[in-house]
């Protein structure tokens, strides 16, 4: 089949909402876009473990400790099946991890902000996982089959995390003055970075149009950001916390909230590596990788020895 007829067949599938599967023909640029997006997503899960793991040993109660540990473990699991989904496109996990460690590959900038108090764990669950869900629910219908299926599973767990985070915030907001202040402070620090999670404004987003056409992406950045604001503002109000945006107001005509301008300079600075924790996060990943090298080498050597022993045994028999 000629390339143009394969392309026609591919585009027809996209049009008819038939999922693209690993062994089928796809344009190189489609494959490349998916590898970039899925691996970035996987890296975000892995790097995202760090700010939350920062509070495991200090969680304020046994119940919270166990819930947080389970949550961070879920993120590791998400990373694992996203790497697997990306591998179906012909890029190895090793290549992807190497790109993360060298700083070549990106991950969600939100994880370059520090978790300073316990309330940050609540804010991450509520806002960061909340924003992630907004992004990810449409991805359950993304055109590439393995990615869509991974997202179905991930979304279920993320929505559980989101409720858990909100419940932490609710408990703090109903608590002592110190706890209320802690919750408000966390909202103040995490609100804007959470809005930035949806990426640049549609007019400045370089990959968006093509991704929408391929149905990899199903909703635009600005549309998702607006959905998030509309969903989250009433939740903040319900527990008596104030969104740190003086321009925030209900727009009757649009049936949506108007909100203030995002500090895009901060956004691009963090993307470029100048966020408060970019260096620390990459250093932590590199340290774990370096210190784990001998373990991986030993596991490989042992597996080879075992295989050799097995084949020698079979030869004797």
């Amino acid at each position: 089949m000629s390339e143009s007829s394969m392309l026609e067949k591919f585009e027809d599938k996209i049009k008819r909402e038939v999922k693209i599967e690993p062994r089928e023909w796809m344009p190189d640029a489609y494959r490349k876009t998916l590898v970039r997006q899925i691996s970035q997503h996987a890296h975000s899960e892995i790097v995202g473990m760090l700010p939350e793991a920062n509070w495991i040993t200090r969680a304020p109660s046994m119940r919270r400790k166990v819930a947080l540990l389970a949550k961070v473990q879920d993120e590791a699991g998400h990373g694992l099946y996203l790497y697997s989904a990306a591998e179906t496109l012909g890029t190895s996990r090793k290549e992807m991890v190497d790109d993360l460690l060298s700083g070549k590959a990106k991950y969600s900038s939100i994880f370059n902000y520090p978790t300073i108090t316990w309330a940050d764990i609540g804010a991450i669950g509520w806002l960061v996982d909340g924003a992630a869900i907004m992004n990810q629910v449409p991805l359950c219908r993304t055109s590439y089959g393995p990615y869509a299926r991974a997202m179905v599973r991930i979304c279920k767990e993320e929505s559980f995390h989101q409720r858990q985070g909100y419940e932490i915030m609710l408990t703090l907001a109903q608590g002592s003055e110190e706890q209320k202040a802690m919750a408000q402070d966390a909202l103040d620090r995490w609100w804007w970075p959470s809005l930035m999670m949806f990426g640049p404004s549609d007019k400045d987003s370089k990959h968006s149009a093509q991704s929408m056409a391929w149905k990899i992406k199903r909703k635009s950045n600005d549309e998702l950001r607006q959905n998030f604001v509309d969903a989250t503002v009433p939740q903040a109000r319900l527990i008596g916390l104030t969104i740190p945006d003086p321009d925030l107001k209900w727009n009757e005509e649009r049936g949506s909230y108007d909100f203030g301008e995002i500090d895009w300079e901060e956004f691009w600075n963090v993307v470029k590596g100048n966020g408060p924790c970019n260096k620390q996060r990459l250093d932590a990943r590199n340290k774990a990788h370096e210190e784990g090298r001998w373990v991986r080498e030993a596991a490989l050597a042992f597996a080879e020895k075992q295989a050799k022993r097995k084949s020698e045994k079979e030869q004797v028999a």
Partner: peptide, 12 residues
């Protein structure tokens, strides 16, 4: 639990 996020291999 101190290992969480810092293990030698993701599976481990």
């Amino acid at each position: 639990s101190e290992w969480c996020g810092h293990g030698p291999i993701l599976e481990q």
